[in-house]
Structures are given as structure tokens and as C-alpha cells.
Nucleic acid binder design. Structure first.
Lengths: 222, 222, 222, 222
DNA sequence: AATGAATGAGACTTCATTCAT
DNA sequence: GATGAATGAAGTCTCATTCAT
């Protein structure tokens, strides 16, 4: 029975259980927010951000539209949270790589492998790769870009280190990172889990192709 | 001198209007259509397809909204024409490459160079690379994908030929093409003409990085 | 007290709005939908379906345009509901006639009387008679026609029964029903409640004129 | 003479060929107008007045849209001309009936037969019966109704005469005419030339059914 | 006599968001 | 915490009509 679920009761509820209730509520908040962005990420990837309406999102979550606005300020904030989760996901996975796994090239290769895997198999990761942040307001965009830049910086640092230790040919680290990350991001565009290519397969092949070009050429001074 | 032909000048031309160009009310289906898609391509790239309203497009062209519908059946048709022009542009440039310029690898390298150049410097070309065709109705999408596939097929054929003549290492041609084309397409995403990186510079670097990984490894029997 | 039930009062009721009727923001899907189709029926009859814009309808109801779309999927659905209500109205009234009120002719006469009364005095009934269902999409049209056919079938059945029991002259039941129903439907076109002719008067006269022609001719073998 | 008609060329034309040309032009004008309203009537009957766009009409006639405005002031005028032609058609056919063909009933029967035939077989006639004149502006509507009234008046006169000479039962001539004409007009709504019922068949049956009810009841002193 | 091109007005519909409960 | 109901703004598109030639 609702005109709202618990109108009469609610007013009493927060008087009755002061502390625990709050924690539980907070926990609930977190859980709900997670559920929202998870579903949202899925829909954004399936139909695009613009074409995913708040109505659809609410319907999928089996909650009412205003409920979404209880958890998030607006649609944009949901997307931003997707990005944030995606970037966290990526950093999580990449951060786990041991920082002393050989020379720069070796570490770059692992990095590429891992990044490709995340982008292909994790939905939040795919959001980062796929959804154009130009959909965001300029303020939110700046925030997201700051986060994204960290990943790019990692790539660039690895390349630079590889060049320093001789395991990577002399090249423009910025362009090299862009090429590598771009190819992987783009894969997020066309990869379909239902297709015949396996993520591992793609990740492996991309690692070879994309890092192979950075190998120092034998006997060449370039 | 039509807006549609003079490509070198074109970079500034999206502001030009054939409306009232020479004398008033010249004949001009062709001319006008060209002007529309040129401006549309520009706006699509700037704000995205969905967020570019027909109103905005009309305003930019300094014509009324219904006038657009005199030249195109609907918004989708405009996007399709952008794609078509872009693909023609790409094929034009790639087709000009002499088909006997050395072995597979050599030809692939030229191809990459040229493709990157088009995608970075021609607006229609960028449309092909950047605008998600999932915005289209399924019918139009099929048409566009058929066209796009031809370009992908070219890449794949070059790789296959390179493998055959030994100039390219044994690899999955499909994945190799995807990696290469993807990296370039992605560049369309972040490249800003106003930035510090020159298109030629990027194209050159990408050529090295992306094809380098396909070189047969010295001393490897594979 | 719902707008939808009190038919006697209803003739003036198309101005009533359940919006803010009792207290503010009562529950009321049903109530509101009824109010919408009641007002819609009135406007459709006054200006025609095509020329009745959703804007006008909303204005009359003193709600915003999108609110209409909260209650109905689209304009067509509103018309379909008008039809449905009208047909229900007609069937209600006709169904109340006792099925054993004499021979076929006697029952037909009652039926004509009642049908004419509904078509002349009930707005939903008039919708069924007057609004061309070719305005509908082919799918909706099929649905409406199925409903309409039931009424036509009733007429035809009565005529057939009358022929069987000798109370009606031998004739083509289909054409007879069409003639009778047509004359009545057409009356919906020109009848104005504000005119000098009373509905009862018209219904009575039509009954005589339209069924008189079906009387078996004395001493004539047809 | 409207602004739209003969501005540029006319200035020279009427100096050069003063008489013949004018006649020819007038003849052409007539012919073209006829062609327009003929096609228009067809389309109006097929899709309805509102849904028949001037574009479609022009396309069907293989002329340009502005050309229509050369021959007619606006869409409404085209409909009015359809009505006018239809009414002329009806009057033509009805006027041909000899005014001394027996008593009132006999003449009424012929009249019904003829009216039904025209409404079912002539497109202009069908326009009069079918197209709701509420589509017209109030001014045009008045004109059309004046014309229509003449037909109605004929019906009513025949009934009155029939009552006078005893061949028709005492009844309200107005309602009798409405019933008769209404049934026939309505037939224009559902009759499809491609269907199985022949116009003659329908006309004959309607004549019997609709006039039968007006026969004076045997043995009744009224 | 005829037309290619253009337009103002307005149609239906969708969406992100908020109000009042 | 949650929701049924509502809305302002905007979107795509169509139409009758007219301008300039």
C-alpha cells in the first residue's frame, strides 16, 4: 500500500532507532547506488548514453523515476559514477601488476594485456573506453578527464621508462600511448561478447601487434 | 567553383553558404546539399549526432528548418550522406596509392599513412571514423556498414598479402586490421586541429608504431 | 461520484475536470482517463479528429500536453478508447432489451429506437457513428472494426429472425441493416442538441420509416 | 485576377494576341481546373480531405505545387469545387427525371433510385455525400450548405406531394427526407466499387426499404 | 503559364526533472 | 525512502502557402 511506502511510519522510525538505522540506511544507499550504476552502465553501452532514458533505467531497476533522483542528482551524475567505477576498475587491475616485472617493455606488455582485458570484459571499464565524455557538461568533463589522464600517464610513463632502459625504441611516448590505448578503446566499440573472438585472444594479439612496433630495431641507430 | 570540390580550401568552408551565393536563388540542389552535409558533418563532429538538432543546423546554414527537408528526407539521410562522402573521400585517397609500390608491408605502410591523414584532416573522413552508426535505423546501418566493410577489407587484404610475400609476420589479419584501423579511428576522437600535434606527425608516428609490430622477427623461422 | 458513471448529468460534464477535484492530487488513473476521453470525444465530434490537436485537448482539460501522454500512449489510443466507450455504451443499451419482446420485427423496432437514441444522445455513441475509422492505423482499425461488426451483426440477426418468423418481408438482411444503421449514423452527423428536433422524436420517426419498408406486403408474394 | 496569375508574361501576352489567345487560355484554364478537381475528388475520397496534401495532389497531376495555386486560391476552394461539381452532377441526373411520372410516391422512388446511383457511381457525387463540410471555413460552408439544401428540398417536396396525393403516409417530410438521404449518403461511406455488391443492386434495395416505410398503411384512415 | 525553392505555423511526441504526498 | 502525477523545453517532421524567376 503506498502513496509512498511508509509515510505514516517513517516519521516515527528515525526517532526510534537512531544509530544502527543510519548505518543500515547508508549501507542501503551504497547498495542501491551500485545497482543503479551497474544497470546504467549496461544500458549506456547497449543503447548509448543519450538514447538511454531515465524512464528505461528506472523500469529496468523496477523502481520509480523519482527514486533515481533520490540517489543521484541527475543523469549526468550517473554517467560520471559509471566513469569513476570504470576507472577504479581499471586502476585496480593495473595497480595489481607488480612494478618490478622486468624492463619497461615487459611491464608495458603486461599493462596492455591487462588494460585490454578490462576494457573487453568489464562493463564499467568499457564505459570508460567507449562513452564519449563530450556528452558531459564541461565541468563534469574536466573531472572525468583528470581521472582518465592518470591512466594515460601510466602508459606514457611505462613507455618512457622502456626507452630509458633500452627495451623500447626511441619514440614519442605520447603518441605511442595514444596509439596503443586508442586501438584498445576502439576494440570496446566493436567487440561483442557473443561473437567468436575471445577477449583473451584479442588482448594477446593486441599486445603483440601494439608493442611490437616499439621494439628497438636491431642494429639500427634510429 | 563549388563548395563540394575545393577540398584544400574546405577546412574553413563550413561557414560558407551557397544560399544567395552568386545571384539570388540560383539553381542548386547539388550545391545546397553539399553545403548542408558539410555543415552537418562539422556539427556532428562537434556536438555529436544526437545533440545536433535540425534547428541548429538550419540556423547555422541561415535557412529555415523546413528548407532542410526540401533537400533531405530526414535527419538520418543527412548523416548517411556524411558517411557516404566520408567513405568516398577515404576511398579516393586510398585508391590513388599505386598498387605496385613494393611488397605487402610497404603498401600497408602507405595505406596507414594515407588513412590516418584522411581521418585527421578531412571532416567527412572523420565522420566515418567517429560517428557511431548505431544511431542509424537498422536499414541505413546496413548500407553504411557495407560501405565501411570495404575499407576494412582493404586493410585485411594488404595484411594477408604481406604475410604471403613474407614481409609481414604471421598473424591474424582480422585482428591486425582492427588494431590498426582502431588506433587511427580513435585518433579522430582526440585530435584537435588547433592542438600542437600536426596531422603529418601523427600519421607518421602511427605508421611506424602500428606496422612495426607486424614485421617478421629476425631470426625467427615463423 | 465519477465522471464516467453519471451519464444523465454527463451532457454538461465535458467541462468538468477531475484534476484537483476533491483534494489535490488524488489517485485517479481511471478517473483521469475518463475525463480525457470524455473531453476528447466532445472535441472530436466538434472539430473532427484530425483537427483536434493534443494541445487543444490539453488546454481544455487544463493540463499540460505531456500529461496526456501519461494517461495515453498517443492520440490514436485516445480515439480508440472513445470508440470502445461508445461501443460499450451502445451494447449496454441494446443488451438491456429483452430478447423475447415479440417477433423479429417487434424486436428490430425496439432495437432501432434504442440505437437511434444512443447515437443521438450519448457522445461516445456518436463517436462510433460519426468518426471515420480510416483515421486509425491499420492495426487499431482492425480492432475497432471487429467491435463495430458486432453491432452490425445484431441488426442483421434481427432481420434474419424476422424473415424467418414472417414478421419481416423477404429481403437482403445485409442491405437492410446497412440502410437502417446508415440512416441513423448519418443522423449523428446533422443532429444538433440545440436544434428544434428532439432525439425521441427523431428516433421514433426513424423507427417507423426505416422498419416500415420491411413489413411483409399484405397479399403480395413479394 | 490575382497577383499569382499573370504578372510577368501577361503584360506582353495580352498585347500580342488579343482574342483567340484569351479564349484558348480560358479553355485551357477550364480543362486544367477540371483535371485538378477530378483528381482531387479521387484523392479526397481515398484518403480524406485533411490527409490529402497539396503535394500529393500536385504529384498525381504531374504538375508543380504552385501551379495548383494558379488555378485555385487554396485547398478549400478545390474542395468547394468538388462539392459544386458533385451537386451539379446530382442535380443533372435528378433533373432529368420527368416531373410527371406518376404520383408522389412513384416519383420519390425514381428519385431515390437515381440519387443512390449517383452517390455510388460518380466520384463527385460521392464527395457531396461523404466529405464532411465541417472541414470548410464557415463562409465556404454556408455556400456549400445552400447548394446541398436544394437537394434536400427536392426530397422534401416529393414527400410532401406524396402525402398530398395520398400515395405517401402522413409523416414528417423533413425527417423522412433525412432518413432516406442519410441512408444513401452513408452507403457512400462503406461502398467499395471492388466489392461484391453492385450499385444497381444497392440502389434498388434501398429504394424498396426506404420508401416502403412511407407507404400508407392499408385500412388506415390516416 | 509554370516552377524550384523557401518558410511560418503548428502537429505529435519524448525527455529530464520536480512537486506534493 | 519512495512515488504517482505533472510539466517546460525541446525534438523531428509536415503542411499550406508564397516568393522570385
Amino acid at each position: 500500500m503506498s502513496l509512498g511506502t511508509t509515510r505514516p511510519i517513517a516519521r516515527k522510525a528515525h526517532e526510534a532507532e537512531p544509530w544502527k538505522a543510519f548505518q543500515v540506511r547508508q549501507r542501503g544507499m551504497e547498495l542501491k547506488r551500485d545497482a543503479v550504476i551497474k544497470t546504467a552502465a549496461h544500458l549506456f553501452l547497449e543503447h548509448g548514453y543519450q538514447k538511454t532514458s531515465m524512464s528505461l533505467l528506472a523500469t529496468r531497476l523496477k523502481i520509480s523515476k523519482p527514486a533515481l533522483y533520490y540517489y543521484f542528482r541527475n543523469k549526468e551524475e550517473i554517467l560520471v559514477e559509471c566513469y569513476r567505477s570504470g576507472i577504479a576498475e581499471i586502476e585496480d587491475n593495473l595497480g595489481r601488476l607488480s612494478p618490478d616485472a622486468g624492463n619497461g617493455m615487459a611491464r608495458l606488455r603486461l599493462y596492455v594485456l591487462e588494460y585490454a582485458t578490462v576494457v573487453l570484459t568489464h562493463e564499467f571499464g568499457r564505459c570508460v573506453a567507449m562513452i564519449d565524455d563530450s556528452e558531459l557538461s564541461s565541468k563534469a568533463r574536466r573531472g572525468v578527464r583528470d581521472l582518465k589522464r592518470k591512466i594515460d600517464a601510466s602508459f606514457r610513463r611505462l613507455v618512457t621508462e622502456g626507452i630509458a632502459d633500452g627495451s623500447i625504441a626511441d619514440c614519442n611516448p605520447k603518441l605511442a600511448s595514444f596509439a596503443i590505448a586508442g586501438a584498445i578503446n576502439w576494440a570496446g566499440t566493436w567487440y561483442k561478447p557473443s561473437g567468436e573472438l575471445l577477449p583473451e585472444e584479442i588482448a594477446q594479439a593486441f599486445m603483440e601487434i601494439l608493442t611490437g612496433g616499439l621494439r628497438p630495431r636491431a642494429g639500427k641507430a634510429t
